[in-house]
Structures are given as C-alpha cells and as structure tokens.
C-alpha cells in the first residue's frame, strides 16, 4: 500500500490526466462539453476544453502550454501561469490527477 492518500500538487513537470472515474463528453441536447463526476456536472469553457483535451497522461503541463502557444498567441510561461491554477483547482475537485 502507498499509505495515506495525499493531495496532488500541480507543477510544470506534472503529467495531468482526467481522473479514471471522470467522463468528458459532448452534451448533444445543450450543445456543449460537459465533465461528469460523482454528483457533479462541470461545464468547462472553450479554453478549459482545449487544455483538458490535451490532458492525456503523456504530456506535461509545460508540453500542453507549448502546444497551445500558437492557438492563443501567447508565450508558454504565460500559459503555464494561467493553466496551473486551473489544473490545481480541478485536481482538488478530483477531476484530474497527475
């Protein structure tokens, strides 16, 4: 056993992925993306969707930021600064792991 569960702390080198029990899918009725988790429905905005679609358990936060540099026309440092708090918040809600 790995002992007591502990909080995931996101850093640029972290490799985030959607938690195993979380489902991200397109809601046809409302025409939007939703994230389904126990007793929770999250409705991510367009940027969050772009980030989460890159959370594949292979790319690091830094690699995700690099992938988004062109899309959002911003340097990776700035994108990391924006997405780290978001990913930390999602980790605290149990939506992503790393």
């Amino acid at each position: 056993m790995s002992g007591k569960p502990s909080r995931t702390v996101m850093a640029p080198a972290s490799v985030p992925a959607l938690a195993r029990h979380v489902k991200m899918r397109h809601d046809k009725v409302r025409n939007r993306w939703v994230i389904l988790a126990p007793e929770r429905v999250f409705t991510p905005d367009a940027v969050a969707i772009a980030v989460l679609q890159l959370c594949d358990g292979k790319r690091s936060v830094e690699a995700i930021a690099v992938a988004l540099e062109q899309t959002y026309n911003a340097p990776k440092e700035r994108i990391i600064g924006d997405i780290l708090p978001m990913l930390q918040d999602l980790a605290d809600r149990g939506v992503v792991t790393a």
């Binding site: 409302r30 429905v41 409705t43 905005d45 997405i83 978001m86």
Partner: peptide, 19 residues
C-alpha cells in the same frame, strides 16, 4: 481567469432540461 469553471449549482435561470 479565462479557465474558470461553472458548476451545476450556477445553472442558468431559464428552464432547461433536467440534469
């Protein structure tokens, strides 16, 4: 923060389908 999330608790006021 452009990455903000809204939860079901902040659902819109117009009547939509049940969640």
């Amino acid at each position: 923060n452009p990455f903000s999330f809204s939860t079901s608790a902040e659902q819109t006021r117009a009547l939509g389908p049940p969640l």
